[in-house]
Design a protein around this nucleic acid. Sequence first.
DNA 1: ACAATTAGCTTACAGATGTAAGCTAATTTT
DNA 2: AAAATTAGCTTACATCTGTAAGCTAATTGT
Lengths: 202, 202
Amino acid sequence: MTRAQQKERTRRAIIDAAFAQLSPDKGFSSLSLREVAREAGIAPTSFYRHFADMDELGLTLVDEAGLMLRQLLRQARHRIEKNGSVIRTSIETFMEFVVGNSNVFRLLLRERSGTSAPFRRAVAREIQHFCVELADYLRKETACPDEFAQVQAEAMVTLVFHAGADALDASPDLRLQITHRTITQLRWLAHGAAGYGRRPKE
Amino acid sequence: MTRAQQKERTRRAIIDAAFAQLSPDKGFSSLSLREVAREAGIAPTSFYRHFADMDELGLTLVDEAGLMLRQLLRQARHRIEKNGSVIRTSIETFMEFVVGNSNVFRLLLRERSGTSAPFRRAVAREIQHFCVELADYLRKETACPDEFAQVQAEAMVTLVFHAGADALDASPDLRLQITHRTITQLRWLAHGAAGYGRRPKE
DNA sequence: ACAATTAGCTTACAGATGTAAGCTAATTTT
DNA sequence: AAAATTAGCTTACATCTGTAAGCTAATTGT
């Protein structure tokens, strides 16, 4: 095995170890270099051969998380074409992800309002991607006036993200209720935005 | 001065010290007992005369933060009665609070999705209070059907909170833009919820 | 084949942390 | 007035942290 391959393998081991150590009770900021190294099976100081910082590792995790969600949404669009409601399908897909990859979602959720400005920016950038993609979709496929698509998309993404956060702590049937609630909220938004051809005075 | 008075005074010193040490770069979980005690002007171990835990202190802070916001909203309602738009006034009042007490707002924001389940529950409870109060208002004062008031209120509070989070990192004029955007979003919601006398099939 | 690079290791250190033990002095209670 | 309570202090300890220094051994480049 070539040296570069081995290095990449160790790098993945570090990333995987970090994801594995995230939990409902442990956010990225309370991860320790030593613990991550231990779980990755390397000496603490070897960590520096791969990342300058814990922060550099963290930003890598955020990137990976955003990537996963992006792929998921593509998959969701695929489902929509042959299936029914856009809103319902999107939210249900999203909820599946949240439940199935809760550590990944929690990372985004927490670092979005965390203590590190670079982390917040990184998460904001990822979320902005979803908003732009959704806005494009809204412009093409719905009655929403072009100039409001972005604002509507941002509201929708906010509500869905928040629903995901609620779902993390919820029992399965409470989760269904949350899904239901969110669908209603998004429909109101869509209806409201479509109805307001122009924003009314005051 | 009586002993109970002195004790209460020290307790406040601890609480104030904790609030003072929160910052954009430092959340509650990275506060240390020793540092808080130092800023409060007591020995580290004296802390335990007032709180069993750092957690107990943290929950106290969350309670105080919720209380402040509650008082603020009462004040906002007062403004509304003699003034104009409910939505605009509420959001502007909220934004003033966020900017003027950013440490307090950040505490709620972060612990809402933080690593401690008790903290999350405490914040969720505070937020739920706002939702219930807003839902009452919507039922009384708007065209929203009774059974949807709660769901609408939750969406509104979510969007406003999120706007507050965005505002924390924003420049003053970006902040105005955020306020504007949020007003639009809430109006769409109100319009949509009022328009859906009954939820449509699928 | 030899030299250079480098992934990873071991050892070591200085600093910070939470908290246990036991003391002092002042207020409260009786 | 005597006894009990208690807010706060000082000292001490074990633990964990990040990271610097220097070594080894294996892959790479020439």
